[in-house]
Amino acid sequence: MEQRIRPESDKSDSKETFLSRLGPGLITGASDDDPSGIGTYSQAGAQLGFGIGWTMLVSYPLMVAIQELSGRIGRTTGHGIAGNVCRNYPPPVIWSLVTLLFVANTINVAADLGAMGDALKLLIGGPAPLYVVVFGIVSVLAQVFLNYERYVAILKWLTLVLFAYVIALFVVKVPWDEALAGLFVPKIELSGAFLTTLVAILGTTISPYLFIWQSSQEAEEQDIDPQKKPLKKEPENETKEVWRIRIDTLVGMAMSNIIAIAIILTTAATLHSKGVTNIQSSSQAAEALKPIAGAFAELIFALGIIGTGLLAIPVLAGSTAYAIGEGRKWP
């Protein structure tokens, strides 16, 4: 009887949509393109043009490797990175790391909220500080009052807002021969501007909160599903689950870098080509696009900032909460 049931289960598994199999890796990759990250990529494209695009191809395998490792830690042990650290190292180690994460994420959340407020002000006018407060309240209420499964589903659909930047790329006029050369032919400059931008890009694409989030979300998936146990307790599922995590991570990181490339190429084709090289934030980039690429490009860019902020802020705040909760061994 057990043999008759198992094929039916396998058959139902095969009917799962590709999107339904994506989760922690997809959300992690998409949240990497937060408003602060958009500002970094906008600055890179505006300041250095197409020649900085190749860095996104180099960073992709690095991102995949470390994020897949993070996901596998959570799925194998049933605990996120912070939960494993607190079980294997003395308290000063975990709390020094959590404190650094808390400070960095809080600053990042504040920057993202500020960019979202500025973006909405660009679209409809009014007071940006009020919009910052509203976005903050909405994010908190959603995290507190929505159950985990529904909230994760919302985050997965929010990843679609990132395609606004792909649309923006095709709205502007791009010299594709130069753009493709910048992507596939590495160009290194021994200048302060280039090296600073390179460090900023690597710091944006490979961030601690992403490690914490993906590992903890893999562990959380086991908490809400009574049929799932850590792989250390059910090693027979290792091959299937590791493959799922790998595909999820490959897709999520690819999405992150494709959007980053679209932003770099868009700002390089518009701002850099017109001599606008000093961009300090994502909202400033959206505003600068209007006289050069038109109001539609500005609209898409600004809407993308708001949408990515709504996606990234829960991940930033959630990774901090996961780290603190796991550090205290709270459920």
Rank of each mutant, 00 (worst) to 15 (best):
K121F: 09
L62F: 14
E326P: 15
K187P: 01
A115H: 12
N278S: 13
T77D: 05
T76Q: 02
I81C: 02
F50W: 09
I73C: 00
S14C: 06
M255C: 05
L265I: 14
V58L: 15
W330Q: 15
A323W: 10
S9P: 01
W157F: 13
I66L: 09
K228V: 07
L130I: 08
L141R: 07
T76S: 15
T55C: 11
G125P: 07
I154F: 12
P35A: 12
T106S: 14
I279H: 02
P186N: 11
S36N: 04
I305F: 10
D223P: 02
Y131T: 14
E298G: 14
L180Q: 08
G318L: 14
G51D: 08
T159H: 11
T28V: 07
L122P: 05
Q47C: 04
N237L: 12
L202Q: 06
T277A: 05
V172G: 09
S12H: 13
T266M: 08
T249V: 13
E326G: 14
S59C: 07
E8S: 14
V103E: 06
I212K: 06
A128Q: 12
M253V: 13
P7V: 05
A260M: 10
A181D: 04
A285F: 04
E234N: 14
L113G: 06
G327N: 11
D33C: 06
V138S: 12
F194V: 02
R6P: 01
P208L: 07
E221K: 15
Q217R: 08
P208I: 08
T99S: 13
A200V: 08
I52W: 05
G117F: 04
T308V: 04
A286H: 05
Y41P: 05
L190Q: 07
G53P: 01
S96D: 09
W54N: 09
M116E: 15
E178L: 13
T266L: 09
T205G: 15
Q284E: 11
Q214A: 02
I107A: 15
R246F: 07
I52T: 09
V276D: 02
G126I: 11
M116D: 11
D32N: 03
E189S: 12
